[in-house]
Write a protein that binds this DNA or RNA. Structure first.
Lengths: 238, 238
DNA sequence: ACAATAGTGTCTTTTAGACAGTATTCT
DNA sequence: AGAATACTGTCTAAAAGACACTATTGT
């Protein structure tokens, strides 16, 4: 896997490819990943700072014997050390000229991680997902697509399972939902409604370091992507 | 455009490609399109019958100077003569071996058409979208993805604008929604709720061939993809 | 006792679903 | 007149939002 071309250094020449039938072919198939987490009430995303200072989403080239999702998981493992992450496909960006290195379509993915992951790659760092410097190529558009997706699924699925730890208090869950949806949910109503989705269950244990009455701990009953019963909750004030 | 390799005949050999850096590259980038319409209360999709009798979704190869969506629109124009169709990207399928002709990722698209379009391509025909013979490759999975998508967006967007004619009665709209969602909507409640989305407006004209009291004609106020105010309506009985 | 956080109960408003009943046309 | 289709009004049940109030801990 170390013999593949790198996606993280500046290009020097334009790549081309021709297939065995004699027609122009894509020079490569790429994946780009929007890794999201919620830390200190803010939605944050992982970027790589390149040698010229430009910021790019993590990504890489898909090998000819793997699925693009395997590429994503492999790359995330390299950058963060995490093996188990929530990953789903977002959309494919393939406009001619989107990548100056050549005809390189990219399949964009959304990945979610619990907060506090320290990147193992020294060029990687977390930035604010909703208020940040411009990214390279069409990566701003990819990031916007990811934020829209996660907001759209927030109350209908267990996406948040990717961000919350295995056990969490309803207050922790509420902070994550608040950061993503940009809505201040009422604590009582939040508890009622998230229980009504049928996606969480109390573990019976409690957390005592909350500064007041101990909080019951909950888990998502499903750790794979799942849909709950529909709630109609707002996810943005705008 | 006639000099490109065809996507509709059986393969004879496996295509490969190598890029200028010496690495394996995709042999081609394809698009496949799920064209949906509603006719006589049934959801129908366009397929091409190949020389060996197998059924495939319409599709083609993306040229190196066009966006995949342009490829889709070009192919649909060839097969049906229609220029203006509702098109949106679904997902990309790129598992190794998905296409026996070689490493050929495909970007799947959803397209919607009004009923009664006669295909110009003699190999093309409409089949039932929810109850049909098996399709080639992973095309069954692509079709399922399309049906899920259109059901998911039905009450939240103006997707149905792609199927309904420019002017339509609320009964016609209700039949389309009924076919897609597989729910028998109450006529009165349907009228109230579709007006509440803010996506339709009465034209002031009427249709008199309904066999009873004339029906008011409506249009979608937006013909480009748009989102209405959220309704929580059910879309499946299962 | 007091502060702090967790959690419950309940009232109001909105909206979905059902359906009775009225309106307008054609034969 | 009667049949057929279009449309309105209204009742009920469910669910979302707001918020007062109670519960349980640490200091």
């Amino acid at each position: 896997m170390s013999s593949e071309p790198t996606n993280s250094t500046a290009h020097t020449e334009r790549w081309t490819a021709t297939n065995s039938a004699g027609y122009a072919a894509p020079a490569a198939l790429a994946v780009d990943v929007v890794v999201l987490t919620v830390q200190d009430g803010a939605t944050r995303t992982l970027v790589l700072e390149r040698s010229d200072g430009a910021l790019a989403l993590p990504g890489g080239f898909v090998g000819d014997a793997e699925t693009p999702q395997q590429t994503v998981i492999r790359k995330l493992s390299e950058k963060t050390g995490l093996q188990e992450v929530y990953v789903e496909q977002l959309a494919t960006f393939a406009a001619p000229g989107r990548d100056p290195r050549g005809w390189i379509p990219t399949i964009a993915y959304l990945a979610l991680m619990p907060p506090g992951i320290e990147p193992t790659d020294p060029a990687a760092r977390w930035i604010n997902a909703t208020d940040h410097a411009a990214l390279v190529f069409d990566h701003n558009e990819i990031l916007e697509t990811a934020l829209e997706r996660v907001r759209g699924k927030l109350w209908w699925s267990n996406v948040a399972v990717g961000i919350l730890p295995g056990e969490f208090t309803l207050a922790e869950a509420r902070h994550v939902y608040t950061a993503i949806a940009d809505i201040d949910y009422d604590p009582g109503t939040f508890a009622r409604d998230i229980r009504a989705t049928g996606l969480v269950a109390a573990t019976g244990r409690e957390r005592h370091d909350t500064g007041g009455r101990p909080a019951s701990l909950y888990t998502f009953t499903e750790h794979h992507p799942a849909w709950g019963v529909g709630r109609r909750k707002r996810v943005s004030n705008t």
